[in-house]
Simulated assay, not measured.
Amino acid sequence: MPADDALSLLSMVLKHDRTFVPVKDAQTRRWHVSTVRGEFEILATGIKWYDTRAQRGGGGAIDLAMHLLGLSFVDAVKHLIAREGAHGADPS
């Protein structure tokens, strides 16, 4: 799952920064994200993500859920499955 899509499942408020100009990859987007754990500024390119404030990155929706929400691996998987189902997406 692309990080952009995962962010929509993990955030309370999600805002795309349209003023951002990518340096390395033209596909990179900057997002301002609000979750139950606070505010984040996330750069997303495909499945990869980078938290500019924490200076930490990773790849994949599970890793992103663990980072943004402070969840264990198992709880991150459960959270994503529940949110994906609530948004009417096909979990397969």
Rank of each mutant, 00 (worst) to 15 (best):
V77A: 11
D51F: 03
L10H: 04
L69T: 02
F20G: 05
A3K: 02
K15L: 09
T45M: 01
W31A: 05
E39W: 07
V74H: 10
T35D: 05
H79Y: 06
I42G: 01
K48S: 15
A26E: 15
T45F: 01
V77T: 12
A26C: 08
G88M: 12
T19I: 03
D51H: 09
R56P: 00
V23D: 14
G88C: 08
V21C: 09
G58W: 03
V36H: 08
L7G: 03
A3M: 00
V36C: 04
D4A: 11
R53W: 12
G85V: 06
R18E: 14
D90K: 14
R56N: 07
A86M: 08
L69D: 01
H67C: 07
A89L: 15
R83A: 12
A65K: 02
S92L: 12
G46M: 10
R29Y: 04
Q27C: 12
A44I: 07
H79G: 00
H67P: 02
A76K: 01
A76H: 05
Y50W: 11
L68F: 03
A89Y: 15
P2S: 05
A89C: 12
G88Y: 10
H16W: 12
G38I: 02
A26Q: 11
I62N: 07
L80T: 01
T19A: 11
M12A: 03
V77R: 15
D90L: 15
S72V: 05
D51T: 07
D17V: 11
D4E: 14
A65Q: 04
K24Q: 07
L14Q: 12
I62M: 11
L14H: 02
M12S: 11
G46L: 08
I47T: 13
H79M: 03
H67I: 07
D51E: 07
L69S: 04
G59N: 09
A65T: 06
R37H: 13
G46D: 14
G88I: 05
S72C: 00
G59E: 13
R18F: 11
D90I: 15
T52C: 00
D4C: 05
T28K: 09
V13D: 14
V74W: 03
M1A: 14
W31T: 00
D75M: 06
K48Q: 09
V33M: 06
A76T: 04
E41L: 12
I47W: 09
L9K: 03
H87P: 00
S34M: 09
L71Q: 08
K15F: 04
T28D: 08
V33S: 02
S92I: 11
T35N: 04
D63T: 11
A82C: 01
W31C: 09
